[in-house]
């Protein structure tokens, strides 16, 4: 557990009127959503709807054109140590010469800062994280020798080793087998029981209702957000997946052609 008890009430992430332009093309229009602390939240939407973009904006990996984002009521820079990130599996070089344990230990690097070496305690934390995803027996394997599900577990273990309060995950269930999916879900539930917040980009509509308790539905703009029982309705699903609003697309294209999306003053 982290030294300071994580805020289990209130707002974990507040996205306020955020517009994000990627290669100058706006991919998110005025998204305004608050993820409650202690929730297990899904971000759903069709391909190219801006799901990963929203996640990366929260992490400060993409510049936002307008609006602001707060994590636990503060700018990200002040609370970075409270945030863990699980990128998409395809984003890294799996041929890189590191072992499973090396990757998990990377989760401790954030709190170490530059130049400092991982201590005994950091190594123990990494081992514990590895154990909790059931990957201890693969500890010294080279990462390219893992299956897709095992790679995903390693990424999850790295996030656990970060011992964060907020977990942002980009498609944690993508391309994993059923057994891995269940064990990842168990880990996410445990995190929630410990009072932590999980926000995951999710693509399997069948499982949204049973896995998550909060949902944000995106399609270039926020269609709906709220507790799963109310927000994840057939009507909202139709509005999210029932084709783009052609006018929204046209305006998006017009703004792109118009040059740059100017930053707000």
């Amino acid at each position: 557990m982290p030294a300071d008890t994580p805020p289990t009430t209130g707002i974990a992430v507040e996205v306020h009127d955020v517009t994000v332009a990627y290669h100058r093309k706006p991919v998110l229009w005025d998204v305004d959503v608050s993820f409650p602390a202690g929730s297990l939240a899904a971000i759903v939407g069709p391909n190219g709807a801006g799901k990963s973009t929203l996640l990366k904006s929260i992490l400060g990996l993409l510049p936002i054109a307008s609006g602001r984002i707060e994590v636990f009521g503060k700018p990200l820079a002040q609370v970075r140590d409270l945030v863990a990130y699980v990128p998409q599996r395809e984003s890294v070089d799996w041929e890189f010469p590191v072992s499973v344990f090396d990757v998990v230990l990377m989760g401790r690097f954030g709190r170490l800062g530059w130049f400092r070496r991982p201590s005994r305690a950091d190594r123990d934390a990494a081992d514990a994280a590895l154990h909790s995803v059931g990957m201890t027996e693969f500890r010294d394997r080279q990462i390219s020798q893992l299956s897709g599900g095992q790679q995903q577990r390693v990424f999850l273990a790295r996030a656990l080793a970060q011992d964060a309060t907020l977990y942002l995950m980009d498609e944690p269930f993508a391309g994993v087998d059923a057994a891995t999916e269940q064990s990842i879900l168990e880990v996410l539930r445990t995190l929630q029981q410990q009072g932590r917040t999980v926000i995951a980009v999710h693509h399997d509509l069948q499982t949204v209702r049973s896995y998550f308790d909060f949902v944000a539905m995106l399609n270039l703009h926020l269609v709906a957000a709220g507790p799963i029982e109310t927000a994840f309705s057939a009507d909202n699903l139709k509005r999210t997946y029932g084709g783009r609003l052609t006018l929204l697309d046209e305006v998006t294209e017009a703004v792109r052609r118009g040059g740059t999306l100017p930053r707000s003053p």
Binding site: K56, R80, V83, Y85, V92, V103, G110, R158
Partner: peptide, 10 residues
């Protein structure tokens, strides 16, 4: 190994 993750650590 993972630039995006390094970036997320600030």
């Amino acid at each position: 190994f993972d630039r995006a993750f390094a970036g997320s650590l600030g």
